[in-house]
């Protein structure tokens, strides 16, 4: 009993961490490679989750769809829709300086949050969408969760491989050049806006994919699940702790911070009963303090960025920017 409980917990933990790792890789493409501040990670995560949920759930009278299509269509559509959204946003906002872009992405996140909450015809409002099908269910009863974990791990490996290759490619090199010195990249004849847009869309697609995987994992989504604290803030902490610009760091950070986050739950379970209702706030407080400690003491993360040989080395995403 103890052992099987432990195994179940391990599977649960690894699945969620892997989903967060995909989010963190997506943010890494935007911030780590290209230096674009996206404070609206949760928006793309939520759009991916809702897209896949609407596509794969059975028909419902109270909202759009469901289309009752196979899950793989949902998993493919989620990054597409998130990518289209990112493209539309990017066209307007990516010419802005980085701090304005950050404010603009908060605005997008706010709009997405309000739409999820208020447009009940589309999303069923605050009641959320229930009964999202789980893939690989019933093939071999008893190991459903394990099979899903393997699927998520395989997708994570794919995203990781693509992202790592992109970093080493000439494309990644241009992104780093833009990040370090936009004017110089422009002078070298690179279309800054085009490269930024590509990175923004690709990163957001990874976030949308993570959203779909999350939706099929938990089977029920509502606007509550996409609060900025859990969908955006924690992803930033993961990336910065792991090492922005480093794909291994982004994945490691996701697992490490999710472990810390889960660990704080064990910690707050020791609190007296009267404090239980405030445990969530206490855990967020700890994560917030952790971010400050990382920024103050080791801002390059556990695994600092290591650009491939042949170009000037050194420097995190922030080096050399005014």
């Amino acid at each position: 009993m103890q052992i099987s409980g432990l195994i179940n917990f391990a599977i649960f933990f690894l699945t969620l961490s892997s989903i967060y790792a995909i989010l963190s890789l997506g943010l890494n493409i935007q911030w780590g490679y290209a230096g674009m501040l996206n404070i609206g990670v949760g928006a793309f995560f939520a759009v991916g989750a809702y897209t896949s949920a609407i596509i794969t759930t059975p028909d419902s009278a109270s909202r759009l769809g469901g289309l009752d299509l196979p899950i793989w269509i949902g998993l493919l559509s989620a990054p597409m829709i998130a990518g289209v959204l990112a493209f539309l946003i990017g066209i307007i906002t990516l010419t802005l300086r980085s701090d304005y872009l950050a404010i603009a992405t908060i605005g997008i996140a706010e709009i997405v949050r309000l739409v999820l909450k208020n447009e009940a015809w589309l999303t069923n409002g605050v009641r959320g969408i229930a009964g999202i099908p789980k893939p690989l269910e019933g093939i071999n009863p008893g190991v459903d969760a394990l099979l899903y974990l393997l699927l998520v791990l395989a997708i994570l490996a794919g995203v990781f491989w693509l992202s790592d290759r992109a970093y080493r490619s000439p494309w990644g090199r241009v992104l780093r050049a833009i990040r370090e010195d936009e004017q110089a990249a422009l002078a070298a004849g690179k279309s800054v806006l085009k490269f930024r847009l590509q990175a923004f869309v690709l990163g957001s697609m990874a976030m949308g994919l993570a959203g779909a995987l999350y939706a099929h994992f938990v089977a029920f989504i509502s606007p509550e699940a996409f609060q900025p604290e859990f969908a955006t803030f924690i992803v930033w902490v993961m990336l910065i702790a792991g090492g922005s610009g480093n794909t291994r760091g982004a994945v490691l950070g996701a697992f490490a911070i999710w472990a810390v986050w889960s660990g704080t739950e064990l910690l707050t379970n020791l609190l007296p009963i009267a404090w239980i209702s405030r445990a969530g706030a206490l855990r967020l407080l700890l994560i917030g303090v952790l971010l400050q400690v990382i920024l103050l003491t080791r801002s390059e993360g556990i695994l600092p960025e290591k650009p491939p040989k042949g170009i000037a080395t050194g420097g995190g995403p922030d080096r050399g920017r005014k």
Partner: peptide, 19 residues
């Protein structure tokens, strides 16, 4: 440090204050 680091840090301070 570059201002963006301060921005990210203030995002964390916001969460600390709210908690």
């Amino acid at each position: 440090r570059p201002p963006v680091i301060l921005l990210i840090s203030s995002f964390g301070v916001a969460l600390i204050l709210r908690s």
